[in-house]
Every structure is written in structure tokens, then in C-alpha cells.
Amino acid sequence: MSAEKKLTVLVVEDTKHDYILIERSIRALEEKGIKCELHWVTTGEDALDFLYRRDRYANAPRPNLILLDLRLPGMNGLEVLEQIKKDERLRKIPVVVLTVSELEEDMVRAYDSGASAYLQKPTHTEDFEKLLNTVWEYWQVVRLPE
């Protein structure tokens, strides 16, 4: 990744504890000199408002990676995913599903709807951290349209 490029991540997650772990992982990344910008919403509706820059998200930046939980209050993650992939302007943003669900059906539906990856949240902190680092590494390598 070139120096001027920034990783702008939108985390859609209602479990605060998981968000804290994600945030900590990102901070560690920044300490290594990688430019990162982290945004956090807790509901599907907020996620869409953020992406469409509605109301209080009027000045929101366009993320180049979305981490999406499936279990959310109100609109669930799969519905948010479908909405994103239906929209021509948003469809190019990679969406990584991060969930506790082991249901085959959830995974199939996520990929069918256009998820870039389906990750299952590990129970133990260390495993989770390892997983997040893999994600950051991968998405720094991957080329994305501006």
C-alpha cells in the first residue's frame, strides 16, 4: 500500500467488547505508522445512513472496508449487506462479515449477497487479535478502486 493511501474502516458492530478489541488492533496498526481511520456504528440503519451520508453522517468519509456483524438490533447484517451490494455506488466497497454464527445457511447467504469474506469470531482474545491482524494485512495488499 502506498504511503498516502489510508485504510478507512467502517465497523458495524453492536457488541462493545468486540469493538474495543477491533479498535485496539487498529491503534496497534497506527503505531506501526499505517494510516488508519476507524468509524463505528451499532445498527444497520446507522450503517446505511453513514454510507449515504445522511443526517448526522453528512460529512462521513467513504470507507474502503466494512466489517459487518450479522446480528444487529433492528435491520440485520445480511439485509445491510444486500442493500450495499444493490447500490451501484456502494457495491465496490469490500464487506467482511464478522459473526459468531456457524450456520451454513448464513455463510451461503452472505457470499450469495456479495460478501468478500465470511469470518467467524473466535472465542479467545488472542485468536481474535490474530484474525484481525490477518484481515488488516490482507486488505492492505489488495488493490481497490478509488
Binding site: H17, L70, V100, L103, K121, T125
Partner: peptide, 17 residues
């Protein structure tokens, strides 16, 4: 798959942490 498991996982995760 989601609602039951998520809190159990959080508990384990927090204790572990």
C-alpha cells in the same frame, strides 16, 4: 446461532482477556 451464542462468547472472551 446469534443471540444465544454472542453473549456466551463475550463472557468467555472477557474472562479470557
Amino acid at each position: 446461532a446469534h443471540d444465544l451464542k454472542a453473549p456466551a462468547r463475550t463472557i468467555v472472551s472477557l474472562a479470557d482477556q
